[in-house]
């Protein structure tokens, strides 16, 4: 008898979540990630690129500064560049609003968002700095100013969901619900948002992504458990697509920022960071993500290519992929 894979029956599915004015669909899968021998996957994972609302300055990763040379400090131009590089979605982070940084306010957040919306025709995420009060100040204003523009705003936490959640609901935006790597807390936050009136398909789950080598495994297992709850137990409070903000976790690590010459055993700096980003992206896709927020365009290109191979099948087309130089070691 011919070999047959042991299959699993699922009783639930991940919500189809259309984002942006362009209605790009996230989610919709009916089985564990990429198990298309036992389920359907109407929407491939989408890829966003993260941009800043200000010039990142000295401390910014050199490979990222190089990839976005000439557009840093101009969110509109940066967003445009991200879309040229192939981003499905642009994630504007309001870095300048950090009280430990420039502590800018609502007016600056609105101005930066306006620039991005004017520059690109893809869904836009407006992301705060995970400071409960500052994010209420900036994101509430952004929600109101851009009523009906179908933004995705976050992070919304159990500390500020009432304010930001209500504004997003009132002005027609989706929210990113962030909880600290825990299935029950993710569910609780979703329930709170739904009680507020937020539609289930206007919520994305942000499980709080850890970096590769810096706690990725916690997020990985929480995501697998979220998928199990959503698909096997049909828990409709957890059937939201998952978003992972992984790019910045990678590029803030020590290893991604050490120059090639300083540690030749870690290889070429740009390749190293890109492949760390790719490795984490593939891991998180295996755990069930629907939306990856990346930083480097080469990562996006490789991840996109890999998603196509993973879903559509067929051999790898080697042309046009970035080459890895072998770094000599003395």
């Amino acid at each position: 008898m011919a070999f047959q894979i042991n299959t699993v029956k699922y009783s639930g599915k991940i919500n189809v979540t259309p984002v942006g004015a362009q209605k790009i669909n996230l989610g919709g899968q009916t089985a564990f990630p990429f198990y298309d021998f036992e389920g359907t996957f109407p929407n491939k994972p989408k890829l966003a690129i993260q941009i800043w609302d200000m010039d990142p300055g000295e401390g910014f990763s050199v490979p990222l500064a190089k990839a976005f040379e000439g557009v840093l400090g101009d969110p509109g131009a940066w967003a445009k560049k991200a879309v040229e590089y192939g981003a499905d979605i642009v994630c504007l982070t309001l870095k300048s609003s950090d009280p430990n940084d420039q502590n800018t306010g609502a007016a600056e957040a609105i101005a930066a968002t306006q620039k991005v919306l004017d520059a690109v025709d893809v869904p836009v995420i407006v992301f705060g700095v995970d400071n409960k009060d500052k994010d209420v100040e900036t994101l509430s204003a952004v929600c109101e100013k851009f009523a009906g523009k179908n933004l995705i705003v976050g992070p919304v936490t159990d500390k500020n969901y009432k304010q930001i959640g209500a504004q997003a609901l009132a002005y027609g935006h989706a929210v990113i619900a962030r909880s600290p790597i825990d299935v029950n807390l993710a569910k609780q936050l979703n329930i709170l948002l739904m009680d507020l009136g937020t539609k289930p398909e206007n919520i994305l789950i942000d499980p709080n992504t850890g970096g590769l080598g810096y706690g990725m495994e916690y997020c990985y297992s929480v995501m697998e458990r979220l998928q199990a709850a959503a698909l096997l137990q049909a828990d409709d409070k957890l059937q939201q697509p998952i978003i992972n903000m992984l790019g910045e976790e990678i590029w803030k690590t020590k290893e991604a920022n050490q120059p090639t010459a300083a540690v030749p055993t870690l290889g070429d700096q740009t390749c190293r960071g890109v492949l760390m980003e790719v490795t984490e992206a593939v891991s998180l896709m295996a755990a069930g993500t629907s939306l990856l927020v990346l930083s480097h365009p080469a990562s996006l290109k490789l991840v996109r290519e890999y998603i196509d191979l993973w879903t559509d099948g067929g051999p790898v087309k080697d042309d046009g992929l970035p080459e890895v130089p072998i770094t000599p070691i003395n």
Binding site: L212, G213, E217, V263, G267, D268, R272, L275, M276, V282
Partner: peptide, 27 residues
């Protein structure tokens, strides 16, 4: 991530093995 006992690459470089070693450590 998905169950291989051994993976065979065509060459090693730090940029190639380091990310995979971190991933393996995590998983």
């Amino acid at each position: 991530a998905k169950y291989a006992g051994i993976v065979v690459l065509s060459d090693f470089d730090g940029a190639v093995v380091f990310p995979l070693l971190l991933q393996r450590l995590n998983i």
